[in-house]
Simulated scan of single mutants.
Amino acid sequence: MHVTGSRGRLLTSRRSLLGLAGVAAGTSLLPRAGRADAASTIVPRRPIAPADALIAFGHTGPITDGGWSMVHDRGVQAVRRAFPGIRTVYVESVPYSADATRIFRQFVAEGANMVFATSEYGDFIKDVSDRAPDVAFMECDGTTLTPNLGWYYVSHWYASYIIGIAAGLMSKTGRLGFIGAFPIPSVYASANATLLGAQSVNPAMTLQGITINAWFDPQAATQAATALVDNGCDFLCGIMDEPAYLRVAVARGVRAAMWNTGMLKYGPEAYVSSVVLDFNDFYVAQVRALLDGTWRPSAAFLTLGHGVDRDAWGPGVPEGVARQADDMRDRMLAGYNPFRGPIHDNHGRLRVPAGVTLDDAAIYHCDWAVAGVSGLG
């Protein structure tokens, strides 16, 4: 347990995972589709003094995971710096079960004015938010917009596409290996974008995926990565909350691109780059709006260069490869969208006709694999 700030109160849970302190947020956002009628029923909010505010965070993993939950915890720390004296509480490793509902209810019972779920908890959080209309709720990777519940996510597919270009230029076997948690839209979006980027410079590229049913399981990730390299993949990528498969890449002499944060230190000789996330500004902005009395539920993406980007290129990335990949990054920052038809799925069905461009909402809800992907569905 970690306690700081004024009038700290004790929150207990079966997960034994607590912290009280200060909070902050702010970022450039791209609005997305939600329940359009939600805003019309919002009850006006009153300003809150920082000393009277309690902000709660429910994390999907441990904040020491070196990845997803650690990045969100950095956002919690940014809130504390921005609003000295504000109180925060967090619970790590919130399960995807009825225990999540109990934890979110505890936040409300403890007097939280705002609750962030740093992963998708669906009805587990919505059931609580529906019964606590005076509390502001935000769900990362969510889909529901109500008068007091919004969601936010990162448009990570652009950074993945950029890294995919490097993968396509550097791979000798033409086979990418991908480690994911579950066959869900965020995983499809990452795998699809990486392969499409690779295919933009080498149309023969393929991607083999393995899902391990966990975001944080170093042993399973190591086993999956080893199997992929044994099957001829010479470039590893994926969405994991720790660097296990980078260590496999080092041991096996292949390349790897990571996720969540820069992980160069875990294997510089194999490291290519990483999709890096930064929720600091977003959290500061949300809390500031709550304190000002101007908070409204929203559906928003953190965009390329504003909350998500690629990490610096690893030392083994040739200058020409970096330049070619970054040329695409420059085009994206200028407004170019590379997710253009025709795009077929891995069963041969035309999913995106010629002349059609996938917007962020369509990519975010994607539940199919592009041609060349195997192992994900």
Rank of each mutant, 00 (worst) to 15 (best):
A214P: 02
L333A: 01
E92N: 08
R15W: 04
N213F: 10
R81V: 12
H344S: 09
Y271P: 08
P315L: 15
D359T: 10
G320F: 05
R80S: 14
P218H: 00
G142M: 07
S274A: 15
P297D: 03
T64I: 10
G34V: 11
T88L: 13
F216C: 05
T118A: 05
E110L: 15
G150C: 05
A132W: 02
R288H: 07
A322P: 05
G348H: 03
G111Y: 01
D65K: 11
N337F: 14
A167I: 02
V275E: 00
G314F: 03
G111T: 03
Q286K: 13
F83Q: 00
G341V: 13
A166R: 04
M328T: 10
A38L: 03
G122A: 08
R35M: 06
G267Y: 14
D311A: 15
L207A: 02
A225P: 09
A224I: 13
P147I: 04
D281T: 14
G377D: 13
A193I: 10
T206F: 03
A78K: 03
A25F: 11
G305H: 10
M263W: 05
L20N: 00
P353V: 05
V248C: 11
D345Q: 09
T144S: 12
D52H: 08
F235K: 02
S69F: 05
Y161R: 12
A159Y: 07
Y152M: 15
D345P: 09
M263S: 09
G320D: 07
Y158V: 14
A166T: 06
I239D: 03
D52S: 06
T144Y: 09
A220P: 13
F178W: 13
W157L: 10
A136Y: 01
F116W: 11
L17G: 01
Y336K: 07
Y271I: 05
I163N: 03
A100V: 12
S40V: 04
D217G: 08
C366M: 14
N346H: 08
T12S: 07
Q199D: 00
A38V: 04
R340P: 02
H347G: 09
L236A: 04
S40M: 06
L30S: 05
T146R: 08
V94M: 06
D327Q: 12
A98Q: 10
R46G: 02
T294R: 11
G305S: 07
R45F: 01
N202G: 01
G168W: 06
A362R: 14
A38F: 07
Q324K: 15
A214L: 05
P62Q: 01
A299F: 06
N280K: 13
R247G: 03
E242W: 13
A371Y: 04
V370T: 12
Y121C: 08
V308A: 11
F279V: 09
H59T: 01
A322G: 12
V254G: 01
G307M: 09
R14Y: 04
A189S: 15
Y336P: 10
A221F: 02
N337S: 13
A38M: 00
G355Y: 14
L145K: 14
L350E: 04
L196M: 13
A299T: 11
A159F: 10
V128N: 00
D123M: 06
H344G: 03
